[in-house]
Amino acid sequence: MPYNKPLPQATPETQPFWDSLKRHQMQLQRCQDCREFYFYPRPFCPRCYSANVAWEDVSGRATLETYVINHRAAPRFEEDAPYVIAVVTLAEGPRMMTNLVGVDPDPGKLPPDLALEVVYDDVTDEVTLPKFRPA
């Protein structure tokens, strides 16, 4: 069955992020002046406002910042419920929303700060979503 869940539509500012996921090597923008990594993608550093920014590889390592276990599925996610929607903190600093995969949807087994690693989920030929599993 074709993938029918919501898909991201890249903009010129975010295209390199989505392209890097398709290559299975996540990249984020990093300020070349203050050295801060940041997310979402944007053409300037949110910390020091420098426009001297570049895309760099990141490790894919992260920790579990916070999460919910959704029992009342969003439309087209019915077969996944209950599923974990998480915010993770990447080793390089930025945070992003994601899903946890390969886990029991059980709060007793999902302590905040749990060590995680990225999983590249090729949901369509065009789109790869970054998801995370216990490291």
Binding site: L7, T11, A73, A74, I85, M97
Partner: peptide, 19 residues
């Protein structure tokens, strides 16, 4: 789908305020 919420939240199955 091109908004930040469309790119960076919606693909993970958020569905309204409870999530």
């Amino acid at each position: 789908p091109a908004q930040p919420a469309g790119q960076f939240q919606a693909p993970y199955g958020v569905g309204g305020p409870p999530t």
